[in-house]
């Protein structure tokens, strides 16, 4: 039994294949961009505004405040990356409620891609913050012998990110599928609700973990590690 969106393929030409993962990712992306574009087309500076603008402003402002709480610095440089992570995952999981929609986050390819993006974002932000030399020096702290462990830590947390999101979302979809076959009437709805909750929590966790990794890479704080441990439990 395999209900990964990767297995649904609409079109294929050699190695290039248009799977449900990519298609529904595009749907999510299109929705995000269209809503953003429509709402931000005519923004109001006055206190009186459209409710959509209000919603987006709330989301953006809340994200900023969350980022600020973690990194204790100007949040705007992290906002596009972290905010997009959250919005993309959140909307994808939310749309999982729609019949016929396969959330792209249920594919290991998607989650791995996001984790890899975080993997590269950490050194990028670190270098932006403290320079090339300053960033890579941290791998040699406190001694040179710590270098392999640092590298292992980087890789393992990337892997954990990818697998955690994939597992949660795929399991949610899988549970619904199994329950549909066992008790087809009411229980799946409850599980759908649970899946909705789990999906949002996972979106939040993924974004926050990415932020913590980036922040720890950028400011050499060990505080981020504690956060990671907490979130893992």
């Amino acid at each position: 039994m395999d209900i990964s969106p990767d297995s649904i393929i609409y079109w294929q030409w050699g190695a290039i294949k248009l799977s449900a993962t990519i298609l529904f990712s595009w749907v999510v992306m299109a929705l995000l961009v269209i809503i953003s574009w429509l709402v931000t087309r005519n923004l109001s500076v006055k206190p009186e505004m459209q409710r959509w603008q209000n919603l987006l402003e709330s989301i953006v402002e809340y994200t900023r405040s969350q980022i600020k709480e973690v990194v204790h610095q100007q949040p705007d440089q992290y906002l596009p990356f972290i905010g997009t992570l959250f919005l993309f995952i959140s909307l994808a999981n939310l749309l999982g409620l729609v019949p016929g929609f396969n959330p792209p986050t249920g594919s290991i390819n998607t989650t791995a891609a996001l984790a890899v993006c975080v993997f590269f974002a950490v050194p990028l932000y670190g270098i932006m913050q403290s320079g090339l030399k300053g960033y890579f020096n941290r791998y040699l702290q406190p001694t040179v012998f710590m270098l392999p462990f640092h590298i292992i830590g980087e890789l393992s947390r990337t892997l954990s990110l990818a697998v955690r999101l994939f597992g949660n979302i795929m399991s949610g979809t899988l549970i619904v599928a199994i329950l549909l076959s066992v008790t087809p009437l009411f229980l799946p709805i409850v599980m759908q609700l649970l899946g909705l909750l789990i999906g949002q929590i996972q979106a939040y966790i993924f974004a926050m973990l990415a932020l913590v990794y980036i922040a720890s890479g950028a400011s050499a704080q060990q505080k981020g590690e504690n956060h990671k441990d907490e979130e893992n439990q």
Binding site: S4, A15, T21, T40, G83, F88, I108, N109, A112, A113
Partner: peptide, 30 residues
């Protein structure tokens, strides 16, 4: 569950695109 490299790379690209688009259409404006 299996890694499909094409899908993986496409998703990375997709994500980078959506980051750029949202930065342009959402965050900066808001």
């Amino acid at each position: 569950m299996q890694m499909d490299w094409f899908t993986f790379i496409a998703q990375v690209v997709n994500f980078l695109i959506i980051v750029v688009l949202l930065k342009r259409f959402l965050y900066d404006r808001i």
